[in-house]
């Protein structure tokens, strides 16, 4: 698999390259700036780009912007964002085109390299992966309306929903919760019914549906008249 890495910290970039090479990935370019990233993405059209959000020249969100620009030109180009922090706004922007093939992880998730490699493969295959912290924030936001559809979920269904939103497959969820895959698919049917979402067997589309649902949160709505 051909991968582009964009990270401005030398040690971290070298570490990523070493880790990925050891796992059999081909690194076609490793760059330390946003313009370099854009050139590499458009020039090499890799199978996946691993991008630090904060890159030179302005050291703000240049990495994200470059990646989004590239995705406009090459629809569906798989992008995995790495960052020291997660922001719902960035997650929204990343998911805005609904095309899948995106991931957003905290940098230190790289430490568990098996999981990290799983994520890379999922994103490269057009899947969607969100850091558990993003999902926690989204769920917190979605459920703060108190009487929304989320409150109708059972505790177990909530756990399943959380793992689904992180982008895990049925089997991964089953492993994680120590239940059978069949039980997972039963829960997921129930969740989709309760949230009034169209059911889907396709893992990727399922993740996108769940994330879209969570992001269309009532947070933008009016304040309910409470007094």
């Amino acid at each position: 698999m051909r991968v582009v890495v964009a990270e401005d910290l030398f040690l971290l970039r070298e570490g990523l390259v070493r880790l990925l090479k050891a796992r059999g990935f081909e690194i076609v370019a490793a760059t330390d700036s946003a313009p370099g990233l854009l050139d590499a993405l458009l020039g090499f059209r890799p199978d996946l780009a691993i991008v630090d959000i904060r890159l030179p020249p302005t050291h703000t969100d240049d990495g994200l912007r470059a990646a989004l620009t590239a995705r406009e030109r090459i629809p569906g180009l798989p992008i995995l964002l790495l960052s020291q922090y997660v922001e719902q706004i960035y997650a929204q922007e990343l998911l805005a085109d609904r095309a899948g093939g995106v991931g957003y992880l905290l940098k230190h998730r790289v430490f568990s390299d098996d999981q990290f490699v799983d994520v890379i493969r999922t994103v490269a295959a057009g899947g969607t992966v969100m850091d558990p912290e993003v999902v926690t924030k989204l769920l917190g936001r979605r459920s703060r309306g108190a009487r929304g559809p989320l409150s109708r979920l059972t505790e177990r269904e909530r756990q399943v929903l959380e793992l689904m939103a992180e982008g895990r497959s049925n089997s991964a969820i089953a492993n994680r919760l120590f239940i059978s895959e069949k039980a997972v698919s039963k829960h997921s049917t129930s969740i989709f019914t309760k949230l009034e979402l169209a059911p889907s067997d396709d893992d990727n589309r399922r993740v996108l549906a769940v994330l879209t649902y969570l992001m269309s949160a009532p947070g933008e709505g009016r304040i309910p008249p409470s007094q």
Binding site: Q88, I89, K137, G140, R141, R144, G145, P218, G219, E220, G221, R222, I223, P224
Partner: peptide
């Protein structure tokens, strides 16, 4: 967005 309350 990160608040535990709806915020306009």
């Amino acid at each position: 967005l990160d608040l535990p309350l709806p915020c306009e």
